[in-house]
């Protein structure tokens, strides 16, 4: 009895009391408050939510059931897979603001949950590439030799359109292979697996995940390398020739004018 009383005056007692009070209040709040009813939604619920969002944001072109509308130039989404939806919406390519030759990347207005819901709904229409896990695209932990092989693979498979260091290139009829300078690793993985726009599909059977990781690692590291002076856009000899004339000949002509204007001292 006495011991209890003395313990009640212990230095830590007040702190403990506050901690217990907080725990109890928090616990009661957690049980009683309306938020408590939010449990992880079932896949069915997410798909239903995705279908609602799809009807609002996508269906005007792709049709209410993702069947596509030839008159709008919108393809069927049956079998494109969650990865395609994730890539197109996260990079802001879809929904398109207006019909263009090619969907340009822009700021994405959707939350990750909304995109996940729509992806799951589209995936439910037919089998296709799933959104990759980080261990499928995360480029860390590769040896220099593996990264170098990634570079070789990049030059074999990608540089014909995307340029030797991913500065982008032209395609027929006003289309472009976009620059890869700001692309996230997951973007590159998803794009290779789903082939957006003019890009061909590079399937797992052709280029396995470990090679994709090596290519992503090569791009990351080559972009991190310092350039030997101003890179002049990384576009190759055209911009070099342009600057040779402007800076080289242009500058030297200015010097020549200055030199020939100088009068000789008598």
């Amino acid at each position: 009895m006495r011991s209890l009383t003395s313990r009640r005056h212990h230095k830590a007692a007040r702190l403990l009391l506050v901690a217990v009070a907080l725990l109890v209040t928090g616990g009661i709040y957690a049980v009683v408050s309306p938020a408590a009813s939010v449990a992880a939604p079932t896949p069915e619920e997410t798909i239903a939510r995705g279908k609602e969002l799809f009807a609002v944001s996508c269906a005007s072109c792709h049709g209410l059931n993702g069947e596509g509308l030839a008159s709008q130039g919108a393809p069927s989404l049956v079998g494109v897979g969650a990865a395609a939806v994730d890539f197109q919406m996260r990079t802001g390519r879809m929904p398109m603001a207006n019909p263009l030759v090619q969907a340009p990347g822009k700021t994405n207005p959707f939350t990750p949950e909304e995109i996940a819901a729509i992806s799951l709904y589209v995936a439910s229409l037919g089998d296709g590439p799933a959104i990759p896990d980080p261990d499928q695209y995360d480029p860390s932990g590769l040896s220099p030799e593996e990264v170098a092989v990634g570079g070789d693979l990049f030059r074999t498979n990608c540089s014909a359109c995307h340029n030797f260091q991913g500065s982008g290139g032209a395609l027929p009829n006003g289309k472009v292979a976009p620059p890869l300078l700001d692309a996230e690793p997951i973007d590159i993985h998803e794009a290779m697996r789903t082939g957006p726009g003019e890009m061909p599909v590079f399937a797992d059977q052709a280029i396995p995940d470990k090679d994709v990781k090596a290519m992503i690692a090569y791009l990351d590291q080559v972009h991190a390398e310092p350039s030997a002076g101003l890179s002049l856009g990384g576009l190759g000899p055209v911009s070099e020739g342009f600057w040779a004339w402007v800076v080289g000949i242009g500058g030297l002509v200015l010097f020549a004018m200055w030199i020939t204007k100088k009068a000789a001292r008598r």
Partner: peptide, 14 residues
């Protein structure tokens, strides 16, 4: 590598 090519394959300006 004859199997490879890059966008922006141009000669020098001349």
């Amino acid at each position: 590598n004859p199997a490879q090519v890059t966008a922006g394959s141009q000669p020098d300006w001349y």
